[in-house]
Amino acid sequence: MNEKTKTSEDCSRRQFFTHISYTLGGLAALMVGIPIVGSVLAPIVKKPKPIWRPVGEVKSFTVGDTVIVSFIDSSPLPWAGVTAETAAWLRREGNEEFICFSVNCAHLGCPVRWVAGARLFMCPCHGGVYYEDGSVAAGPPPRGLYNYPVRVNNGQVEILTSPIPITTV
């Protein structure tokens, strides 16, 4: 009886040490894990504020022409170099009316090109084709080209910086 009690006590003491070791290990991992995981996941939570970027004077664009314009992202890091740049297709449709398309194909994001003679956007990767209004003309894109907000401000055409459009289901 005495022997049995001793074993039982021994076990519970051992169990206590086991539990406290697991708990302390888990707690330590959790404490350091929060800042580590938080830091790694921050880019998908922290959104940069969109900025209107000027891309040229209104008079520099000809009505009816679709041209490529480049501008700087909303909040590039100092060491971004050329990767801070992005581009969009811009067309002047009237006196002060502009339409702006993402260069990313809605299929898998490849850069679409404007074929002026055919008045089509064509994607080199998997053959997506869009009409001049951005709607799908042929190929695999599940939807038309994405539009970027565009405005005229003090004689300057400005495009609102936007995320790379991700086509979701």
Partner: peptide
């Protein structure tokens, strides 16, 4: 998460 933000960059 893959891109590290909303656009390609640093």
């Amino acid at each position: 998460f893959l891109i590290g933000g909303e656009t390609i960059g640093a």
